[in-house]
Design a protein around this nucleic acid. Structure first.
Length: 410
RNA sequence: GGGGGGGUUCCCGAGUGGUCAAAGGGAACAGACUGUAAAUCUGUCGGCAAUAGCCUACGGAGGUUCAAAUCCUCCCCCCCCCA
């Protein structure tokens, strides 16, 4: 398959820009390289957007190098202007601490942080108590405002406005790189292409501070074939935390990707080998669904584990194929008594199953012929689910083609 | 500090006293068509209520008015120019 990191990254489509490809190749061939990526603790979970950098670290580790995940406990208090159009909300210290824990845990699903294998660090450790004056004297003197102003990340914000605190972000990130280089021998920083400017600043700082030659590699900023941001659905982001996005929904997200995205995503988000992926890429027409299933199964398994992935596959088979095993379909419990007499209002059932956000929405959906109970199209808004509809100890609700929920009778 | 321009529903953006739950676009959801895909066409798109209607919403707090997103006062935030 591949015998080095760079070739594989290129083939997989991770390679957007590199500060010195030849130099990096040489370095990676000669020694165990420590490379890092920063993650912002803006929430207590990462989402699909962060999966790309995570995979970057995974591949790095696969080739025997040492990945470092940095959570930006300190920088989160500042807010990165790169690629954002507006001032980011600032977070409280406690919130950031909370978020850090969540992210740390998630990263450890993918990366081995044991012994000398990998590292997980919080930049608050070296930034939080740094005094303003000292920092200016030690670090600030290496930065040229002229150069900072010429960075795209700053330029693009000149119209909307950029606060001074955000303007400092690149200095802090550069400083992170310098510290990692000095204290942990880190020679490589990776990140989304919007980080290019920040990474370059860090490289400069490492040279000036540590007389050390370091490298930067950026990944493409992904959008889906329809131009949407990666990992967005009706309900917002697709999270890695199963409490926020269930493994079932997570699996569904990948099964439903656009045909045109399948190949790219297989390469970027799965660890499947080249041969296997190239086989899947040959699929045409409706068969592409098989490739999507492979994609969904792989990614779900990486993020939520084999067992959850199997359940998601099983649920999908029950709902969309012929399998009779419905045990893994998303469901909730209801006592049998709810269905006696007049039965349970369908509107209510739709709302508290989570299929609909409000009764008004539920009404509209019924009017639009989108709702089915046990496979039967319902056109009566005031429909009640009565006990005679219970089959196999459950009632199957369906909205549209792909949203399903079973009410189990307890 | 002075002058000017702004803050509208998920996003962009119209709206300057009633006809505004608010044009238009995007996103999203649903229907038809399909392959749990795309494209296309159609519909929906604040909450509660069977209808009537009621409530919440146009940066915040007050006020004028029968009636305010629209007028007045104070406050907060953003952008631009000058100092």
């Amino acid at each position: 398959m591949f015998d080095n990191f760079v070739d594989e990254m290129k083939w997989r489509g991770f390679f957007e820009q590199c500060t010195d490809e030849e130099g990096l190749r040489k370095l990676l061939a000669e020694e165990k390289v420590t490379g890092y990526i920063g993650f912002d603790p803006t929430a207590d979970s990462l989402h699909v957007g962060s999966l790309l950098p995570i995979m970057g670290l995974v591949h790095l580790q696969k080739y025997g190098h040492r990945p470092v995940g940095i959570v930006g406990g300190a920088t989160a208090m500042v807010g990165d202007p790169s690629g954002k159009s507006e001032l980011r909300q600032m977070l409280t210290l406690e919130k950031i601490e909370e978020n850090l824990d969540g992210i740390r845990q998630q990263l450890s699903h993918h990366i081995d942080f044991g012994e000398d294998a990998g590292l997980m660090l919080n930049n608050a450790d070296w930034l939080k108590d740094y005094g303003y004056i000292e920092f200016l004297r030690d670090v600030g003197r290496f930065f040229s405002v002229n150069q900072m102003l010429s960075r795209d990340s700053v330029k693009s914000r000149m119209v909307k406005g950029l606060s001074f605190i955000e303007f400092n972000y690149m200095i802090l990130q550069a400083y992170d790189f310098m510290v990692l280089n000095r204290d942990h021998g880190c020679r490589l920083q990776m990140g989304g292409n919007d980080q290019w400017g920040n990474i370059c600043s860090g490289i400069d700082l490492c040279r000036r501070f540590n007389q050390s030659r370091v490298f930067g590699l950026t990944f493409p900023l992904l959008t889906t074939a329809t131009g949407a941001k990666m990992g967005k659905t009706a309900d917002g982001a697709v999270w890695l935390d199963p409490a926020r996005t269930s493994p079932y929904d997570f699996y569904q997200y990948w099964v439903n990707v656009d045909d045109r995205d399948v190949s790219r995503f297989l390469r970027l988000y799965t660890l499947l080998g080249r041969q296997e992926i190239e086989e899947l890429e040959k699929m045409q027409g409706a068969d592409i669904r098989e490739a999507k299933k492979a994609l969904a199964r792989e990614v779900t398994s990486q993020v939520h584990g084999q067992e959850e992935a199997d359940k998601a596959v099983q649920a999908a088979a029950a709902l969309f194929s012929d399998s009779a095993d419905t045990s893994s379909v998303p469901s909730s419990q209801r006592p049998a008594a709810d269905f006696e007499g007049d039965g349970l209002s369908l509107l209510e059932a739709l709302v508290d199953s989570g299929l609909m956000k409000s009764k008004g929405e539920a009404r509209r959906m019924i009017r639009q012929n989108a709702v089915r109970v046990e496979g039967e199209l319902i056109s009566e808004e005031m429909f009640s689910i009565t006990s005679d509809l219970i089959a196999d100890g459950k009632v199957a609700l369906q909205v549209g083609k792909r949203r399903h929920h079973h009410i189990r009778i307890s």
